[in-house]
Computed example of a mutant assay.
Amino acid sequence: MNYWQSFKEYLQIEKNASPYTVKYYLNDLEIFFDFLTAEGLSSLVDVDHRVVRLFLNTLYNRQLSRRSVSRKISSLRTFFRYLEREEVLTGNPFVQVKLPKTDTTIPGFLYQEELEKLFEVNDLTNPLGQRDQAILELLYATGMRVSECQQLSLEHIDFFIGTVFVRGKGRKERYIPYGKFAEIALETYIQDGRNTLLSKAKQSSDAVFLNNRGNPITTRGIREVLNKMVERAALTVHVHPHKLRHTFATHLLNEGADLRSVQELLGHENLSTTQIYTHVTKDHLRSVYMKSHPRANDY
């Protein structure tokens, strides 16, 4: 099967896709190529609606989720559209395939009381504690993705106006403001703990967040940082970086922020992606009702 490299370059250059997106597209493509090989098909010209239906049955037999199947269909639809454009093929066998309906799940988020426990567990007298506090404060203050947090450089933080520069999915760029708590945590870490960590490394780095050896921390390392905080706080909830992103969006909307502003802060391309956060907590609903309904309270 040819066109692998040219399709990869198309995703990287023309679609401006992130490394993660390219990785998943090519992984989906590899699964499809393996299927064609197993079926004895050596040419993409042989792929028709019958082959597509057989491929989908194979995916469902592997008990893949609807979301996973939907992504693979989208990946292959894009691949065959590219082949059409390059005049390799005259049709797209995936164009008529309907994406399976996926269940809409409400994102999990943390209540203020749970957050407060996390904010209190770090030892701010040592470098790692300062780093962990800065990570926690920044993730909650900005709603950035874990990959965006991991890629932050010192030059990306503007302490004068209180913003961070972020390069997100599809290499889209945005500035996100942060508040006083995040500012204090960042300044403490950068001026103190980070220098101690950096002294352990063999070479200099402009990455904001470093590991205990003074090298840039990984996304996995950030997840481990949060896991350890949860253990120290004795919380029974599972906390991951994306849950802090969910919490950021939910709390903003609950406090009256408009959907468009939250969309910009999160870096969502489509407003429909942000709308999943328009749910509100039961406590908030009750609070609004009790304050607003004329007959909610006794005289």
Rank of each mutant, 00 (worst) to 15 (best):
R220P: 01
Y175N: 12
E264L: 15
T196L: 12
L235G: 02
D258G: 06
E255A: 15
N227S: 11
T247F: 06
Y175S: 13
V208K: 08
L265E: 05
F159Q: 03
K200Y: 00
F160Q: 15
V239F: 08
L244W: 02
D206W: 00
E255C: 13
L154I: 08
I157G: 07
L266W: 06
K172R: 08
E187G: 10
D158P: 07
R167V: 07
T250R: 04
V208A: 08
E187A: 15
I190A: 02
I184K: 13
E231L: 11
R167A: 05
A201C: 03
E264Y: 06
R232A: 08
I157H: 05
I176R: 04
R245P: 14
L252A: 09
L252P: 06
E264W: 02
E224L: 15
T188I: 08
N254V: 03
L252Y: 06
Q150A: 15
A234N: 15
G267M: 04
E231F: 05
E269V: 12
N270R: 15
L152R: 07
Q263F: 08
P177S: 01
L210D: 05
F181H: 11
V166A: 00
L186T: 11
V208E: 02
I190H: 06
A201P: 05
P216H: 07
V237D: 07
E255F: 14
H240L: 07
S205G: 04
V166W: 00
G214I: 10
L244G: 11
G221P: 04
Y189C: 08
L226H: 10
H246C: 05
S204A: 15
